[in-house]
Design a protein around this nucleic acid. Sequence first.
DNA 1: TATCAACGGGAAATCGATTTCGCAGAGGTG
DNA 2: CACCTCTGCGAAATCGATTTCCCGTTGATA
Lengths: 343, 343
Amino acid sequence: MKPKVTMKSIANELGVSVSTVSKALKDNPRISKELRKKIQAFSKLLDYQPDARAISLRKQSSKVIGVVIPEITNHFFTTVIKGIDFATKKRGYQAIICLSNESYNEEVKSINLLTSGSIDGLLLSIASGTQKKGIYEHLFDIKNAEIPLVLFDRTEDFIACDIVKADDVGGAYNATKTLIESGCKRIALINFESYINIGKERKMGYGMALNEYGIEEDNTLIFEVDEDKNLYDQIEPVFDLDPLPNAIFAAKEDFAAIAIKLALKKGIKIPDELAIISFVNGLISEYTSPSISAVVQHGYNMGKMAAKLLIDRIENKTPGSPYETKVIATKLKLRDSVKKQNN
Amino acid sequence: MKPKVTMKSIANELGVSVSTVSKALKDNPRISKELRKKIQAFSKLLDYQPDARAISLRKQSSKVIGVVIPEITNHFFTTVIKGIDFATKKRGYQAIICLSNESYNEEVKSINLLTSGSIDGLLLSIASGTQKKGIYEHLFDIKNAEIPLVLFDRTEDFIACDIVKADDVGGAYNATKTLIESGCKRIALINFESYINIGKERKMGYGMALNEYGIEEDNTLIFEVDEDKNLYDQIEPVFDLDPLPNAIFAAKEDFAAIAIKLALKKGIKIPDELAIISFVNGLISEYTSPSISAVVQHGYNMGKMAAKLLIDRIENKTPGSPYETKVIATKLKLRDSVKKQNN
DNA sequence: TATCAACGGGAAATCGATTTCGCAGAGGTG
DNA sequence: CACCTCTGCGAAATCGATTTCCCGTTGATA
């Protein structure tokens, strides 16, 4: 083990005190110019790197924010991370990411790791396991510890903090409306399980559009799939409906891509016999044949916004200001899986 | 600001010393059973959370490993992360992830953040910006600081550390061989730019297979694309070749998917007129039409292996053992973009 | 009764920085 | 000459834990 370069070792070798080294490295004018230069040069020579733990311990601030993500292989979340990373660095902070893997236990562990000293604030998207359990004590604990917290995408309104979410209701509403206006009335919904907040909201938007056009909601057209089980098996029943739906609104890209594969196999023509619009979280929709019309979520913007809100809180720009809920607009990207509107 | 619960505050309220609290919380028998119970109960009541910085500072160990990833929106890397996360937690460690965004500067910053005290070891995949610059001082510095380091996927052999990589040469060799044996002789290669190590190796495997079958390498068939520029524009020229190639080997999934879109638009039949095999990093290949035959890389296994090697080093299982290079096997997943072999 | 071990707990050093305060000596002023 | 003010640096407390060493009791033993 090589001896570490610390202020102490520098001080000893130069025959000065630690406090002098500290001040010199910060260019404090209370140290004479020559000594400052000398200490700085010597430190550079030894490639001195200050110990972040010590500084953070002393200053009670680390300029690091923690991010907890439910599922890292989900492309949407990775775009959010990039947005967070960008906004964070712009403000002179660094982001470190931990996973919850959709598990309540891992979420708790990741939060504990991060909040036990190393971060100034926390960005969190709630694991499905947590939403299923409905236990949120660990989040209230964060608030109790007075660590700034911002929730994004997978959020719960009753937690007192800033929130950033996609316009799930609006996106679903637009998608469904577009399907209706392209001439489809019998629209199947392939959705997440009902305990997931974004599933609830997308279903709500779907219902709103149906309502507006006087179409009755039909529960036999609504399919909730468990992502831990085989998706093909769970989506196949859509095609057993009689009569077949003439459109599908999918809450997630994979659901739509699988529906397309199944439809193609059955010789169903898309979009003529079956139109499809999906909420999109990945890169698939562009490359399927036909390509999938999709509700785009702007994860990057969501990440930027979440980081901005968090850092504002950390730096307490507006002390005591009420918590905000920001809604990131979605955009409907029309591709080949929907008939061109007849107007 | 609420006063923090620390050992000191607990000690004060209970009228004992800090060292007693510390020992009691670790169930040290030098403290009487009753007092231990009392202190433990009181600490639980106050929801005492030890400060990780202080512990890490004192013990010079944090049970945390750092991971630096070049591009978080790349699905392959996210599967590696999941493998790392899994193996790490199994051994009682936690992983924190930072991004380099393919940039040399950000790579340096992320490494500095992580190595300035908070981690016991580092897992790194080199940013393309770094490979382009060819500067590796910051990696040698890690070795100098005696922080265990393991490189994965984007690696450089001359850095003295354990290395985990995919069998890029073998995967490319197999893919090319498969194309040849399905009857294709004129095989285009759509590759990364040449300074990226995985690009070099995939090209090498491609060349080996051609060689073995006595096919001469033809540089007009080799296309290197810059991922920062428009991919469609750079891949389009493949179809200007005269005569057209009868197969494409793509080093990355997106390249293949775009080639398919272009081919379909030009009315080229896949796989009969043009066969395609791709190295795969995402979920696209399964959902295109036709689906893409692909070299699967097992990122999850790569992550598990990298984490294992790193933690072995940290815990110094085999002191002074020579550095290893582990190669993770690839698998060729045949789908519809290649003709069934005629045997 | 003197000695000693075991027991139970505390004081203090330590990890690596920051920051406040204090102090010695130089120089200026009346 | 007495007093004051800078200037330039160091001592020490602090952040929150861990860990070594030390000390006062108690009860057992010779």
